[in-house]
């Protein structure tokens, strides 16, 4: 049996809206961080300087209470060849051109590629954060997104380690947890989230999830055909450990390269096991007590 909080679309009835989300196509992300800035501006997220990190051009480190969008930068040394140009839709045709003109390699020695990817809360179908929240501060909206109600959250911090992606964090200053709201306020006004609107290359695509999923499928096939062997959709599959995400990604390398878990599971999916273990332990404790009190001589 799977224990889960049911809200969307069930509890919204006629009020339920189509589920929306993001398809982030990292193959066309130019790492401009406009999404990060737009998010902070729109949502009044406080500054959170981490100083110079040396992590390529990433100085915001990771998603946290004060970083709801985070752009990862990965510099990779790559063998040149079809895969070496994997981030490039044109690799196939280029190789052909080189062969025809007999020019040999077009990048001497090792090639280089620079992956950039904008990360965000995944708005999981099975959202551990929401499930474990004791106050109900985390809830599922009529759009199928996962949002923290800042006036309800008491800062218990349970959701923080519950999220399999390390998205949520508690803000020292006000003791509450914060994360992407998928711009709930804007959605209610029929407006696109700030980050998606700011993205110049449409790397962040916002829309109805069903439509985005189809688009993503086509895109990944195009890239694979062009020789990007490792191009893969991440959290796109509703059969995966979180039931598919509201924000899913097209990656050009394995998820862990971007700091994402390769096979995340909703941490509460096996809550049943836990309760059984608690039951057994409780009974065991009771029996032990009884044995101790009644079992001996004096």
């Amino acid at each position: 049996m799977k224990l889960e909080t049911h809200a969307w679309p069930g509890s919204y009835g006629a009020e339920a809206k189509p589920r929306v989300g993001f398809f982030t196509d990292t193959s066309i992300c130019i790492g401009c961080k406009a999404c990060e800035v737009a998010c902070k501006e729109w949502n009044h997220v406080p500054e959170s300087s981490e100083g110079f990190t040396g992590h390529s051009y990433d100085n915001t480190v990771a998603l946290d209470a004060d970083t709801w969008r985070h752009v990862a930068f990965i510099e990779q040394r790559k063998e040149v060849g079809v895969d070496g140009a994997a981030s490039l839709a044109q690799s196939a045709s280029l190789d052909q051109l080189i062969d025809e003109t007999g020019l040999g390699t077009y990048q001497e020695g090792d090639g280089l590629r620079w992956l950039m990817a904008s990360d965000v809360c995944k708005h999981c179908t099975h959202a551990a954060c929401l499930e474990v929240c004791p106050t109900g501060a985390l809830f599922r909206t009529e759009f199928g997104t996962v949002v923290v109600q800042e006036d309800v959250c008491n800062g218990c911090g349970y959701c923080v380690p519950a999220c399999p992606f390390g998205v949520l964090d508690r803000r020292e200053e006000d003791g509450r947890v914060w994360k992407c709201t998928l711009c709930y306020d804007r959605l209610k006004d029929d407006r696109e989230p700030a980050c998606a609107q700011a993205c110049p290359t449409h790397s962040i695509q916002f829309g109805e999830l069903s439509e985005l999923r189809e688009r993503a499928q086509v895109r990944v096939e195009t890239l694979r055909d062009a020789g990007a062997e490792k191009a893969q959709l991440y959290l796109h599959d509703s059969d995966d450990g979180i039931g598919g995400a509201g924000a899913f990604f097209l990656l050009l390398d394995d998820p862990e390269v971007y700091g994402l878990p390769p096979d995340p599971v909703d941490t509460t999916h096996d809550i049943g096991t836990s309760w059984k273990a608690v039951g057994a332990a409780t009974a065991g404790l009771g029996l032990t007590l009884a044995a101790a009190v009644f079992g001996g001589r004096r």
Binding site: L3, E4, T5, E131, V132, C133, P134, T135, G136, A137, V152, C153, N154, G155, C156, G157, Y158, R170, R171, D174, G175, R176, V177, T268, I271, S274, W275, V278
Partner: peptide, 26 residues
């Protein structure tokens, strides 16, 4: 004391959720 917002500890008892050991525990 460990809560980020101790003044809101009563929110723990806003609902009862079996999916949340913390809720049950509260």
């Amino acid at each position: 004391k460990d809560l980020g917002r101790p003044e809101r500890f009563l929110n723990m008892l806003r609902m009862f959720k079996v999916t949340s050991p913390m809720s049950v525990g509260s």
